[in-house]
Write a protein that binds this DNA or RNA. Structure first.
Lengths: 102, 102
DNA sequence: GATTAATATGCCTTGACACGTATATTGCTA
DNA sequence: TAGCAATATACGTGTCAAGGCATATTAATC
């Protein structure tokens, strides 16, 4: 599942949004979302595999936290479009420079 | 269909990417993509409805172009996460300021 | 080691959507 | 207005992912 599909799911974005507010256990997320525990766990697996979150065991719980680097991928995709809407040619140029490098 | 679902589809992203390179008619996009004409037209409809592209009739053709403002929605969504990955608290603060305004 | 708590996985059902073929629509041209 | 070119819509089909329920796993405690 690619990056875009991972964040296309509204409940997964809700999980990410909740984690912005601080780290959460699975149970805490279940309390905040209108989803069953297994469904939340599955979404977390997708987010983990996609690199958006990481889990740290604390006793029987697993504390989930954002893994911000992954969001940079999305930012990179957005960059050339950002350049056009902002009318900022510098961003577009840096994008083209990046492409020349490869 | 929400914004994130619109860009979740790889062929739709390919269309957007092609339009970065310059405006295109439907037929030109069909030539560049491994898709039938009806499928391309349907993707364009989704992109149009979502506000990512706009069409201008030129004789029988319709020239499609990017509508960059829509991409700013993603930037807004990304902003608080960007703040965490960059360690830049200023961006996070401006996000929180925005929330206070509403 | 049995019990309970917390989380993960398996299985199944359902709904959404991407696709192609066929056809309708729109607009130009002869 | 007949015919052709370009694009859009209708319809049917297949795939895939999200959801819940049931169950397995992992970890603490008694």
């Amino acid at each position: 599942m690619d990056l875009f599909e991972v964040i296309a799911e509204p409940n997964r974005r809700a999980i990410l949004s909740a984690l912005l507010d601080g780290n959460r256990s699975v149970g805490e997320l279940v309390d905040e979302l209108p989803l069953s525990q297994p469904t939340v766990s599955k979404h977390l697996k997708v987010l983990r595999t996609g690199g958006f979150v990481a889990a740290e065991p604390v006793a029987q719980r697993r504390m989930y936290r954002l893994q911000p680097e992954q969001f940079a991928e999305f930012a990179r995709w957005l960059e050339p479009y950002r350049a056009t809407w902002a009318g900022r040619l510098d961003a577009l140029e840096s994008h083209l420079d990046d492409m020349e490098d490869t």
